[in-house]
Nucleic acid binder design. Structure first.
Lengths: 226, 226
DNA sequence: TACATACTTCGACTAATATCAAATGATATT
DNA sequence: AATATCATTTGATATTAGTCGAAGTATGTA
């Protein structure tokens, strides 16, 4: 039938285990060097380089040369959304999860999705926002209400500064672990940054896990109960 | 890192051109036989059969034997949503669309997405519903308001009958051609059925295109202007 | 200039898989 | 029963694509 865009070209890029591992690693939102990605994928440097060339050629990742390093990153939040969608199917038709190890538990509670908070914590925040009518979501689009702007200002986020940019302020991103939405967009990124700044949580190095401090957990609870 | 579910397993299933064509064809929502899918994919019957076995094994399609035919269909709306997400990336990083032929134009205006209406018409309906507060959408989830229930009843849809089933009533599905959401779920399917019953539109055989009649176009306009 | 680090390209090997013809199995029609 | 249709299985082939060692390029450091 040949309708629509070429599915298989994109899908086959994700279809190789080494490349899928690299993309998964890049879901952390941080740009990584070719060596780091090689390690992540468990392949040699030349192999990784070849894969990265394909991903780059295919438009799934971007590359930025900085000195003798080359930093690779996901090409955009659309790519991230696609990866989450595939993860969702993979989880549902699934590999009969043998045993959800402790790492999986932590990932499910809170993790980085590209550059914002995902997992149960992320979904809880999103639910609070929509329920209290601070955020009006419609499909993948979302918009702050007047009350919502005030709420985020109280939280210490300068919304006006974010609105200047090309990137949409609010976005709803579907969560593979919980099957519900969490807040993405520049506001989602800013919210996570703020939590890091407040020392509510910190990133676990070398993974997507976001680990909340006891104090942070309590403060977060208060935030979404208020 | 090996986190989350196995991306590459699912992606590689979509990554073969023959299989991708089959899945695209199944996006029409109708179940198709192995022979039809072989034709669609441009491969021999044995080859198609082998691909279908893989897709079935992988959980992307279901099969129902009926006499000497075996009808294949997408395993669920989750799979359909994933395919749309991949299409979205494919369209955006894109194949530099040479020339959007007439068929592409018709597909963009109105097409079947699994079993509901997609394209500009589908998005227009969804926008109307949320704007008039007939539907409350939050991420991928959506729910009818009281006003919304009345509205759909007026349109001739028995909502109570739909609610009995396991399938969610309302769902927001992201549209690759327009990059916005349209109405999915059992209600989305019922709405499209109703339009067919009212003779507002009919399917173009052998494609996903939904072609509106002049009368149907006018009635549809009135419906979402009211 | 010499040397080290980060990465890519080249070349050869290997493994995986898409492909179809022919045979087999299963179901309907006569 | 005999025959025709639809589909899967088998087996054999060919192409693709992932893999890494070795060599080459580019950038930073001594």
């Amino acid at each position: 039938m040949k309708d629509g865009p070429d599915l298989s070209r994109i899908a086959s890029l994700v279809g190789d285990p080494a490349r899928a591992n690299m993309l998964s690693a890049l879901m952390s939102g941080t740009a990584l060097t070719a060596s780091e990605l090689a390690l992540e994928a468990g392949v040699s440097l030349p192999t990784a380089s070849s894969h990265l060339a394909k991903l780059s050629e295919g438009g799934l990742v971007t590359v930025a040369s900085q000195g003798r390093h080359r930093y690779y990153a996901l090409a955009g939040s659309e790519v991230a959304a696609m990866l989450e969608a595939i993860s969702g199917v993979a989880a549902s038709v699934g590999p009969k999860r043998v045993r959800p190890g402790p790492r999986d538990g932590a990932m499910r509670e809170a993790r980085i999705c590209y550059d914002h908070l995902a997992g149960e914590k992320g979904v809880a925040l999103f639910d609070h926002l929509t329920q209290k009518r601070l955020l009006k979501a419609s499909g993948q689009d979302a918009a702050l209400t007047a009350k919502g702007r005030a709420w985020f200002s109280d939280f210490g986020i300068d919304i006006a500064a974010l609105e200047g940019r090309r990137r949409p302020l609010c976005r709803a991103c579907l969560d593979w672990s919980v099957r519900r939405s969490h807040l993405a967009g520049s506001l989602g990124a800013a919210a996570l940054d703020r939590m890091f700044a407040l020392n509510w949580a910190r990133r676990e190095s070398g993974s997507r896990v976001v680990r909340f401090t006891p104090k942070g957990r309590a403060e977060f609870e208060r935030l979404i109960r208020a």
